[in-house]
Simulated assay, not measured.
Amino acid sequence: MKKLFKKTHNKYKIKGKKTFNFVNSGSFGLKSISCGQLTKEKWESVRWALRKKFKAKLSTKQNKIWSLIQLNNSLTKLNLESRMGKGKGLVYTKSKFVREGTILFEFDSFPQQFRKEIVEFIQNRIPLKLQLVSF
């Protein structure tokens, strides 16, 4: 039986799902199970809402949240009425393409009962599927 390999411009083969669950800073984290793109505005709003919600709910400064995504793509856009050959356009936002298996957030000093609530809270705001990861 012959195996089929997908051709890519890279020299490495595309393999299956990434299963790395390394949590470095906190006691548990959130890992993406699907691929997708996050823009700067979406990412900042999720971070802000997360801090605001749990600051009001727990009212302690000992809870730590690390966001591990670095935005590395610049998205550009031209006017709708511009003709071809006028250049690339202005940068309107930054983004990051998130692959499956990427850890987005890490948390420390949060009670056990809030873990499921954190996943549901962020899942409703990000267009990715998330999974809870701990030691």
Rank of each mutant, 00 (worst) to 15 (best):
F22L: 09
S109P: 01
K55V: 08
N21V: 03
K7C: 01
F97K: 12
S82C: 12
Q131C: 07
I14E: 09
L130H: 03
L80S: 07
S34A: 13
G16R: 12
K96V: 15
I103R: 09
S95R: 05
K53L: 13
K96L: 13
W66N: 06
E44P: 04
E44D: 15
F135L: 14
Q131G: 08
I14P: 05
L50V: 06
L71W: 00
I14R: 13
L128C: 13
T8D: 07
K6C: 07
K55F: 11
S74C: 07
N21H: 12
S82N: 07
E44I: 00
N73Q: 11
L78S: 12
T102A: 09
K57N: 01
A49W: 03
K55G: 14
I118K: 02
P111E: 01
K77Y: 01
G87C: 11
I69R: 06
L30Y: 02
E41W: 08
E44L: 15
R99K: 07
Q62E: 10
G36Y: 11
F110N: 05
K2R: 07
F135V: 10
Y92P: 01
I65P: 07
L38N: 10
E100N: 04
F114D: 11
L50Y: 01
V46W: 01
N10W: 10
Q113A: 15
T39R: 14
A49P: 06
F28A: 13
L4W: 05
I103G: 09
P127W: 00
L4S: 11
W43M: 06
R115M: 06
K64G: 09
K42A: 02
L38S: 09
T19K: 15
Y12N: 06
L130Y: 08
K57V: 04
K40S: 15
L68D: 02
P127Q: 03
H9N: 14
V119G: 05
S74Q: 14
K86C: 07
Q112K: 08
I33F: 01
R83C: 01
S109C: 03
S82K: 14
A56F: 13
V91I: 14
W48Q: 13
K64H: 09
K55N: 12
T93V: 11
V133C: 13
K42G: 00
K86V: 02
A56P: 09
K94V: 02
C35F: 05
Y92R: 02
S25Q: 00
I69P: 05
I126N: 10
G29W: 14
K129P: 02
L71D: 00
L30A: 04
K61I: 03
G16I: 08
K129N: 15
S32M: 02
S32P: 08
P111A: 00
